[in-house]
Amino acid sequence: MVAGEGAALNDLLRTEELTREYDAKTAVSDVSMSVNVGDIVGIMGPSGSGKSTLFRLINLLERPTKGRIFFDGEEISYSRPDVYLIRRKMALVLQKPAAMNRSVFNNVAYGLELRQLEKEEIQKRVDDYLERLGLTESKLRNARSLSGGEMQRMCFARSVIVEPKLILLDEFTANLDPQNISILEKAVRDFVKQEGRAAIIITHNPFQAKRLCDRSALMMNGKLVEIGETWKIFNDPVDERTRAFVSGEMVF
């Protein structure tokens, strides 16, 4: 059991000893954690500590070597034939934004089109989300011509518009200016708190974890070192490595 993590039965997401080994390297090792509805959980840790791999495992994009995942009341797995239906209840925003070679509107509409919503409904919802994320004027531009900040906002809109129960954000504000960061952080907060959903964010920025996350975790060498209430992680951590990290002694 990882320090600070209690067992709960009604979690939206729970992983048990999730492990992913590549040929010579263990990317994710025995990660057990849970996320409740209304939670924003932050995962911090050095580059290469397995955070992004953990996201791909949870989003069923990769097959775990070992371990179990429970989500929304059932056990889920990579090998189920309806795996895409489970993925439709989550959304992953990748560290490196990926724009499809089509307009901003069509990028954001993509998930809704997969779900075969009515044309008018798609139109309405996309316009609404573009407005919320300040992209209305870029609506008809090719998404590949967007600036870094616009691109990140578009990717966020494209993922939350399908109203997933859980959103996984991988360094979603890396390399952005303060204004873009605050737009996106507000959008995450609104999404989780007002609409009763949950988010896990990977961040390199302890200040962002403090601003945004109810709970925070530190991951190193594929292992979850510690997870707990954000204030406790920063003020009264259990593990020595967490203490070093939050006090800034650990240099990446």
Binding site: R56, N59, L61, Y84, L85, R87, R88, M90, A91, L92, L94, K96, P97, A98, M100, Y110, G111, L114, R115, C155, R158, S159, V162
Partner: peptide
Amino acid sequence: NIKNTVRSLGAND
């Protein structure tokens, strides 16, 4: 990243 995004957004095969 595009391939992962597409699947993450719920596309079937």
